[in-house]
Design a protein around this nucleic acid. Structure first.
Length: 768
DNA sequence: TGGTAAGTAACCAAG
DNA sequence: TTACTTACCA
């Protein structure tokens, strides 16, 4: 760290600076929440390029989401001006795809492989279980999929599992399923997510020359969110770093929250052992949150035993106390939150995108969504079901996959009878059997159906399917020569030939209409892709799509409240955070309370720590006295994590509403709180009980279709005086339309709900 | 073969 | 509560 010519250093503190200048050799940066680790990474890259003269393409940075990757690239770009596009910034998965697309033939796969998601995996496993005549009660596809994933994260092949199983019957069967699973994937020319990492490690292990090629390229390697890497990822990093030994990892053991999917905290705790000569730098100054929020976070996380000792501090203002609300049920909780948001926005204190609603489980989004919709607050739900996992989208993509890759049997199985064309289970079963018996691809069997006696009766129907595929394939082949044909026109044609949209319209339900909208969104995405790429390529599009996570679609510039799980929120920050459903049994989850190992509870506590530290200005915590879970009403106590927050920085309140009123006493001051805990764990046992279903106060309405609401200026086809319908409020008459800065403000007099003012793009009004 | 009714398992988190 | 599977009939 000799020369400090770098302009930006003025903005960095000593520790951050040290991390930026320590470019050679292994470096472990233990970066507490909000301590500016992204800033360190971006400045480090900028320093390498500007001051050390390192070529951008000699730098690689690995992140967990595409969003983090593109942000990093943007920020580096701002500092260095140009060349940032040549830095290899990507997620583990896309980096591996890129490597495998080039070299996977070396380990016996074909370069045009497709990527199977969780849904595809389950289908494959389900087929195998059926085919092996196993008891589906004992072998559930989800459980098996999780096991296989675990094995792969530990780089164990099926043969390794089998060896290890010895006389363990069940494990042996699992090994057999795993073996067959790999065979099917290979036959379908497919890799699953875990394969992407594992096969890359395998490739490098088998082929030092290829690894050397990457060593030549990657002189400086950086890894973000290192605490969440699993064993396979660790091996990969070690392989890549073994060339230059310039490896910098950034992470925080207190924010390790992905143990359940194989993350191994030892990767960060034992980094120094794995990379001798490591420099360790701790970033403990928080720039994100108020003193109050930080104090709460520290108080909570200090109850964990297995952690590297450190304490975050900050120079920021004291800030307001943390609000803790007791609500009667999830609907009260949601109303309270929606009300608070609306107040702050109306006062001009905040914009919608300053708010995040965080919860432990995706199911909690329902009540919140409903109340937000009631109040016309624009929102976006992140996670749960990803856009590309929706049924209609997967159907269309399956067609595209077949067109692009005829060996993808799974895709064929999925849509051969979608929309219905009279090809039933029996027929598909026969075709699958025939294909297996003759080691053919399913699609080739279908093509030849008229010559297969078992299929002759259905051959006309099968023909109607293969004709579509063949026609589209011909078009795809002409895509580069005939300028009238584009990916978009192929999809249009696909929808036309299959009648997919017509079917949906015929249903005449809101849900079907939402699906139609999703499909048009998909078409838009395809068109965008084509615009962005010189030589659009269907396989490449499918690949991009399969690696998109839901968080990648979040857009800070749009004005909406975001709803997501605490897991999804890792790495993000928001001025105002609502942490909902803080009840023992929900957060921490029932399973972790019951677990014998304290590890599980500690992971939940880290999760709570992550949640609290997302907040910049103010944190509101809420819990409900009763909550409906799976049709049963649960009565839970306030979360033990809330009790771990010092009382003097908490302001507890009761949510009063027509429903809660009269139900008596105070929020968490009186009934549930007990004494301020100073000891590690509060008294054991379960603090929640469940009653049989009884009358619920909920409205019984369900606003949730696939579609979500984002704010882009809408095209509106109605004017003042028109009759319109709203998804929730029913019919009404348009009273006024104002052209606002971002969107049209529409005032509608609803027949049943009175006058409402709403944003056009959000309200999705339909002209009648 | 496909539609509907009844039955049942699932909600813990994600790429 | 909801989504998905199984059972039975047209």
């Amino acid at each position: 760290m000799s020369e400090k010519t770098f302009i930006e250093t003025v903005k960095l503190n000593d520790m951050q600076e040290a991390a930026v200048y320590k470019t050679e050799g292994p470096l472990l940066v233990l970066a507490g929440a909000g301590s500016g680790k992204t800033r360190v990474l971006t400045h480090r890259i900028a320093y390498l390029i500007k001051d050390k003269g390192v070529m951008p393409y000699n730098i690689m940075a690995i992140t967990f989401t595409n969003k983090a990757a593109s942000e990093m690239r943007e920020r580096v770009d701002k500092i260095v001006g140009s060349g940032a596009d040549q830095i290899w910034v990507s997620t583990f998965h896309s980096a591996c795809v890129r490597i495998l697309r080039r070299f996977i033939t070396e380990i016996g796969y074909s370069r045009d492989f497709v990527i199977y998601d969780a849904d595809d995996q389950k289908r494959v496993i389900k087929n195998i279980i059926k085919q092996m005549n196993l008891d589906p009660k004992m072998f559930k596809e989800k459980g098996i999929a999780a096991k296989i994933s675990d094995f792969k994260n530990k780089l164990m092949r099926a043969s390794d599992v089998r060896e290890q199983a010895e006389f363990d019957f069940k494990k042996k069967v699992v090994a057999d399923i795993y073996t067959e699973y790999q065979r099917v994937l290979k036959q379908n020319n497919a890799l699953d997510f875990d394969d992407l990492i594992m096969k890359t490690v395998e490739l490098f292990a088998k082929n030092p020359i290829i690894l050397a090629y990457y060593h030549d390229q990657i002189k400086y390697l950086m890894v973000d969110e290192y605490q969440d890497t699993n064993m396979a990822q660790f091996k990969l990093i070690r392989q890549l770093a073994s060339g230059s030994n310039n490896i910098c990892v950034v992470g925080d053991d207190d924010q390790s929250i992905y143990k359940f999917r194989g993350a191994d905290i030892r990767n960060i705790l034992e980094f120094e052992k794995q990379f001798p000569g490591t420099t360790v730098i701790k970033l403990e100054q928080n720039y994100r949150s108020t003193k109050t929020i930080l104090e709460a976070a520290n108080a909570v996380i200090h109850n964990n035993v297995g952690r590297k000792d450190k304490t975050l501090w900050c120079d920021n203002e004291e800030g307001k106390k943390i609000d803790v609300y007791q609500a009667n049920d999830a609907y009260d909780e949601a109303s309270m939150i929606a009300g608070e948001i609306q107040d702050k926005v109306d006062n001009g204190q905040a914009d919608y995108n300053d708010f995040a609603l965080l919860y432990r489980t995706n199911a909690q989004s329902r009540a919140l969504e409903e109340k937000l919709m009631m109040k016309n607050i624009p929102y976006k739900i992140i996670g749960g079901q990803n856009f590309y996992q929706r049924r209609e989208i997967k159907d269309i993509l399956a067609y595209l996959r077949i067109i692009a890759n005829s060996t993808d049997d799974l895709a064929v199985e999925r849509v051969v009878n979608v929309p219905k064309r009279g090809i039933g289970q029996t027929t598909v079963g026969k075709a699958v059997d025939y294909a297996r018996a003759n080691s053919m691809n399913l699609y080739d069997v279908l093509l030849d159906a008229s010559n297969v006696s078992e299929l002759s009766r259905a051959s006309a129907k099968i023909r109607s399917f293969t004709d579509i595929i063949e026609k589209l394939r011909t078009q795809l082949a002409q895509i580069s020569t005939n300028e009238d044909i584009t990916l978009k026109t192929i999809v249009d044609e696909l929808l036309e030939l299959t009648g997919y949209i017509r079917e949906l319209h015929a249903e005449e339900t809101d849900e079907a209409e939402a699906r139609v909208e999703n499909i048009s969104e998909l078409i838009t995405k395809i068109a965008e892709y084509e615009k962005e790429h010189e030589e659009p390529n269907l396989a490449e599009f499918l690949e991009e799509v399969s690696l998109v996570s839901d968080i990648d679609t979040m857009d800070e510039d749009s004005s909406y409240v975001v709803l997501m799980t605490v897991h999804s929120a890792k790495g993000l920050e928001f001025p105002y955070v609502f942490l909902c459903g803080m009840e023992d049994g929900l957060f921490p989850g029932y399973m972790s309370i019951m677990a014998e190992e304290p590890d599980e509870l500690e992971e939940e506590r880290r999760l709570a720590y992550v949640a609290i530290t997302r907040a910049m200005k103010h944190l509101t915590i809420s819990y409900a006295k009763q909550r409906m879970i799976r049709g049963e009403v649960n009565y839970n106590m306030v979360s033990r994590f809330v009790k771990e927050i010092p009382r003097n920085i908490v302001s507890s309140k009761n949510v009063t509403s027509t429903l809660a009123a009269g139900r008596g006493q105070g929020a968490y001051g009186t009934n549930n709180y007990g004494s301020v805990p100073t000891k590690r764990y509060t008294s054991g046992g379960t603090s929640s009980y469940t009653s049989k279903p009884k009358n619920t106060f909920g409205t019984g309405k369900k606003p949730t279709f696939g579609k979500q609401f984002t704010v882009t200026k809408a095209d509106i086809d109605y004017t003042v005086g028109d009759r319109v319908s709203h998804i929730k409020f029913g019919q009404g008459t348009v009273k006024n339309i104002e052209n606002g800065p971002r969107d049209y403000q529409v005032t509608v007099e609803f027949d049943d709900f009175g006058q409402k003012m709403m944003m056009a793009s959000f309200a999705k009004l339909k002209k009648l």
